[in-house]
Every structure is written in structure tokens, then in C-alpha cells.
Write a protein that binds this DNA or RNA. Structure first.
Lengths: 356, 356
DNA sequence: CGAAGAATTTAAAACGATATCACTCTTCAT
DNA sequence: ATGAAGAGTGATATCGTTTTAAATTCTTCG
């Protein structure tokens, strides 16, 4: 028969709180939103009532009135990619810490789907967006972003829109790796990369060309550059083509976490000795590349930091909504080159095999 | 000066649609919600107006009124885990296809955080939940689930709550693997698994014990079973302890996708020959385990199917809300054992090394 | 042709919060 | 004493939708 805190089935509303605290609904609302113009005694009364009723604001009503929600959106090409998942996970964690939620949607690299998702998320009232477009050149996507109407932070992409962005430094790291291979004596280096329509692929490729050119090797022979999807299959196909050709390269850079795996599968199926016959540079896959045989020289990035920074940037922008626009942020995170044992000096054997 | 479709900045509301279609707001609402009691001509008029205005319902208002939203929630231990990400990605894709969104939150294996997330998501009005609790025995979590008030589908977990669940078959596959090792002549087999407080770890361990007992090896010596976290570090530590002991096992099962990587790192650092000195069984990591040296015998699961099935189950349950409760679903997906080259018959050398 | 009944449509009342604006009550300078 | 400024409060309108119940129109049939 105890009647303490009747805990009616219906969740408490602000009206219940107000009544219990013996103040107006408006005052209750003020307390909830930390308005400064409310007397301390009132604040205490409302706080007490909220606690007693276990009150939490109805998000839908709040959003209907204010037009913004504390749900952020995130559009990425493929959440099942380990690198993407790491970024998203870090962002989500950072946002959660601030009481925000993150809804994630995968576009499967379809520009149309991307644009549609951005629109659909905005219309559903997300407060801000993290976006990693698959293709930076799509007008459909840049249009959708421009029209979003909420703060947007780009994830390692450089689309021509007035948004903040957090980027990885790909160019220097790639040049560094190419130089490393050149220093080892390699003169015939190939690269398998992602599409040039997105920053990582474009930057890595540009670095590849520039560094070779800087060493007087600007005239890259045909069939040394493979640009395409980020999928393992692309790595496999490209590596197959490369190494089954009459005169294969002596070094290979696999620039993409799945590409690495596909390429290695191909190399293994052709029983190509690494680094005996081919020096190999991979990327990402931190745990894995360490225990491969041989352990892989790779370019690695701190994906968690990217996600975290992006989330912070977004929250700052959302909070500052309405205030005069600070200049656009453009943060760059360094990549790390980790030397392991998958690259070796160009040996007589390699040369021999090639000059045959 | 063209005034066609003025495209006012404010998005169109149902009132605009109704006015343009020259019907009442209610009729417009009926058309939007596919109510059967609306004349064909009316329907056409409203449809036309919607299209012309580019109208889409305001989700907040809809939710405020109906108390349900088309956003689903998902609570998992760690989105950055490849396996988890695959499941979530598939679920998200399936939901997206039906016009639903998925907000994902990671609990970092904290039961408290899990309970809190479930509550916070519900209060924010998600229409249903996919949950993978880190610890099935936590009353905090099962309480939160019971109190959720929306349909819940458990992801490969067996919590005592009245919810649907989609499970992987772990028991048979593990017994199969143990039998395989026994058939190869191994008598001293070790296992590194995740915690017993969650289904996968518990099932695998039970299978391990049962199959050994079935072969008269029920008396498992100390230090052959390692239960703990799912992290690589646990795999590393356990493998280190196992193989640096005076009489190491001749076969090892690493039951967890990260555990595998940690264990392999340890084995490599100790320069333990696989399968010469130790037969090794891994799990998951499909692309990777194929290109390891040697290629790994593993237990694999179709994570995408799990996610997809869970999403479907959830949608069915959400749609059937209010209707008499069908019995609880409990679907099981088979695991696959893939034999590769990381296991070998117990050789004289292995035996010798051991009997020394 | 008129009435009953079915089929549509509509006006008005929620849903739960915040925004706006008016009001009271101090405090303080004139 | 008067007025102005400002702090604190509250009544009411509003956000965009669905629900309810009542009103209207359309059929059908005696």
C-alpha cells in the first residue's frame, strides 16, 4: 500500500515537475536549461522535483520546439571497414561523453546514396554531421553538404564546401616511403592505390609521382600505377597483373588497408618471396602487419585521433551555432612510417630475375 | 522574377501540402500514413502536392505524437572490433533499406554504461534495440533491457529476458575442432577464450571440456584454460604463459578474433614453429587468416547474416507492436570450420620436445 | 424520393517542450 | 516620492503531427 513515488506508468512531464515544485512550467523549463535568471530557491525546488519524479525531458518535444537535437549523424562509405570503424568508434565515444548520440549510415560508395543520406539525416534533425564522401568530385554530394544546414566536419576528405575538415597527412609519408625504397636501390616501383577522386588516393599518387620525378624517374612506365576501388579484390587483381607480367617491379606499395590483404593473397598464391623478390609496403592493419611473415613495413595512421578530433570540432561548431563564423578549421594529423622486414635492398637475385 | 515553387526557406509542413491539394490537414495525414479510408482522387491530389513541395514529414512532430520513431538503437561493447563492426554494418544496411536509421553506442564492456545507454536510448525514443551485452549475468543490464519498453533483439547473447535473439552456434564447431586436433593425435590441448560470462566464451569452453571428456580426457591439467578479456593483450599474455611453461601444450585454440592476433604475436616472438611445434586454431579474420604463414585453420561465422537477421527480427517486432505476442524467436546461425595448414599431426619432434 | 448506412472528410484537441512578451517586485539614481 | 532598470516569474502561443469524434457527402435500397 505504500504510495511513495507512485511511479505512474506514464513518464513524468515538465508539467508534473512544475506542479510538484509549485512553480510555473516556464520556470521549470528555465531550470532545466540552466537559464541564469532563476532564483536559487526555485532552482532547488525544481531540481528536487525532477529527481523525485525521475524526470527526463522528452527529446521529441524538445526538438520539435527548438529544431535541433542532440543526435549527430555520420555518413561513411563502409562501416565494416576496420579503419572506418575505428574512426567512427572514436567519434562516437567522444560524443557520448558529452551526452550526444551518433547515428551512422553507410553509403556503399554510392554518391547518390550519400547525398540522400545527408538529406535524410538533416531532415530528421541531426545537429551536425561527420561525413566521409567516397568521391570528392561529385556535385551531388557537395551540393547535399552545402544544403545540409547543419555543421559538417569532413573526415579525411577535401570537398569544396565551406566545412571544417580533419585530414591525414598522406603526401609526406608516401614520399618518405618511396625515398626509402629508392635508397634501397629500387628503381622500378609500383603502387596500388584507391581512386584518385578521394584525397588519400590522390595524395599518395601525387607523392609517388613527385618523389620519383625528384630522382629523375619522372617517366613512369606503363602498368606501374593501379588506381581503383579500396577493396581487397582490387589489390588482388592488380598484384596478379603486376607480378605475372614479363618484367615485374621490384617494389610494391599497397596503399589501402584492404588492398594490402588482397595484394598479399595474390603474391602468396604466386609464391613470390618478400622481400627477396619483391619489397612490399603496406598500410594500416596495425596488429596484423606486425605478425605477418615477414612483418610488414607500413604507413599507419591514428584513426582514433581523427575521429576524436572530428567529434570535438563538430561539437564546438554546433555549440557556436549562430555566432559569427570562425574561419574554417583544417586540421592535419601526421602519418607514421613503420619500418619492418618486408623491404630489402635491391639484390643481385632480384636484379637478375628482372634482367633475364 | 520567376515565382515557380517559391521554395521558401522553411521546409514545407503538412499544412502546406493540404492547402495546395485543397484538402484538410487530416486527409493529407491519411495519405501519408497509407490509411485505407481515402478516396483515390484525394490521394492523387495529396501525392502531387507532396511532390511539388518536396514535403517530408517532420520526424520530431511525428514522434511527439506517436511516441515511436524510426530510429533504432544499438548497444555493443566495441564498435572498433572488426567482428562487431561487420554485424552492425549489416544491420544498419538492412534497416536503411526500410527507411530506418540506426544509432550505435559502444559500452566499452561496462555493464553500468550499457544499462545507462539502453535507458538513454529508450528515453530518446528509439523504436527498438539491438543489444550485445558484454556480461550476460549483470542484473543491471537485464533490468535495463526488461524495462526498455521497446522490442529488443540480442546479438549472440543469452540474457534471461523476454527478448528475441540471434545466436551463433559455437558449441558444435568448437567440439568439431577439438575432435580434429584429437584425431591428429594431440592430447594436450589448450584454449584461450573470452570471459565465461558471455555466450561465446561459455559455449566454446563447455564444448572444449565436453569433447575432451568424451575421449576420456576429462581431467584437464591446470593452466590449459585461459578465460578473460577479448583483447589481443589477453591472447598475448596467455600464449606467453602457456608456451614458456616447462611442458607446453601441443595444440592451441585461440577463440576470439583479437585473441588470435595477440597469441600469434606471442608465438612469433618466441619463435614457435606452427604447426611443427604447435598446432594452432584461430577464429574470424577471414581475409587475414588466409594469408598468414602458415594459413590458419579457423572457426568462422557469417557476421553479416547475424546483423541482417537481427535487423529483420527487430523490424518485424516493431511493426507488430501491440499485436498479441508471438513466441520469442531464437535463431541460430551455424559456424564454419575451415581447415588450413596451421594444424598438423602430432609429430615425433613435437612429442620429443615435450617429453624432454 | 427519402432515409439509413457507408464512406470520406473535417474541426479541434492533444503530444511536451520552448519562445515571447507582459507582469511584479526590488533596487537605486534622480 | 518618482521613475527606470533589471531580476524573476508566469500566461499563452507555437512547433508539426496524429487522434478523436463529429460532420459531411455519397450510395444504396425500400
Amino acid at each position: 500500500m505504500t504510495r511513495r513515488t507512485v511511479r505512474s506508468h506514464r513518464p513524468a512531464t515538465i508539467a508534473d515537475v512544475a506542479k510538484l515544485a509549485k512553480v510555473s512550467i516556464v520556470s521549470a523549463s528555465r531550470v532545466i536549461n540552466d537559464s541564469p535568471t532563476v532564483r536559487e530557491s526555485t532552482r532547488r525546488a525544481v531540481r528536487g522535483a525532477m529527481l523525485e519524479l525521475g524526470y527526463t525531458p522528452n527529446a521529441a518535444a524538445q526538438m520539435l520546439r527548438t529544431k535541433r537535437s542532440n543526435i549527430m549523424g555520420c555518413v561513411v562509405p563502409d562501416l565494416s571497414n576496420h579503419v572506418t570503424a575505428a574512426v567512427v568508434h572514436a567519434a562516437e565515444k567522444e560524443l557520448n561523453g558529452a551526452g550526444l548520440l551518433l547515428v551512422t549510415a553507410s553509403s556503399d560508395l554510392s554518391a547518390q546514396r550519400e547525398a540522400q543520406l545527408v538529406q535524410s539525416l538533416c531532415q530528421r534533425g541531426v545537429g551536425g554531421l561527420l561525413i566521409q564522401p567516397g568521391d570528392e568530385t561529385s556535385a551531388l554530394v557537395s551540393g547535399a553538404i552545402t544544403r545540409a544546414g547543419v555543421p559538417v566536419v569532413l573526415l579525411d576528405r577535401d570537398v569544396e564546401v565551406p566545412s571544417d575538415r580533419v585530414l591525414f597527412e598522406h603526401y609526406d609519408a608516401t614520399r618518405q616511403v618511396v625515398r626509402y625504397l629508392l635508397d634501397l636501390g629500387h628503381r622500378d616501383i609500383a603502387i596500388i592505390a584507391t581512386a584518385e577522386t578521394a584525397r588519400p588516393g590522390r595524395e599518395r599518387l601525387r607523392a609517388f609521382r613527385d618523389e620519383l620525378a625528384a630522382h629523375g624517374l619522372g617517366r613512369i612506365p606503363d602498368g606501374r600505377i593501379f588506381c581503383g576501388s579500396h577493396l581487397a579484390q582490387h589489390g588482388f587483381d592488380a598484384a596478379m597483373a603486376l607480378m605475372s607480367a614479363p618484367s615485374p617491379p621490384t617494389a610494391l606499395i599497397a596503399a589501402g588497408n584492404l588492398i594490402v590483404l588482397g595484394a598479399l593473397k595474390a603474391l602468396q598464391s604466386m609464391q613470390i618471396d618478400i622481400p627477396g623478390r619483391l619489397s612490399f609496403v603496406g598500410s594500416d592493419n596495425p596488429l596484423v602487419s606486425e605478425i605477418m611473415t615477414p612483418p610488414l613495413t607500413v604507413i599507419e595512421r591514428d584513426n582514433a585521433s581523427l575521429g576524436q578530433l572530428a567529434a570535438r570540432l563538430l561539437m564546438a561548431r554546433v555549440k557556436a551555432a549562430g555566432q559569427p563564423h570562425r574561419g574554417l578549421e583544417r586540421m592535419t594529423l601526421q602519418s607514421r612510417v613503420i619500418l619492418r622486414r618486408s623491404c630489402a635492398p635491391l639484390s643481385p637475385r632480384t636484379t637478375g630475375a628482372k634482367s633475364r
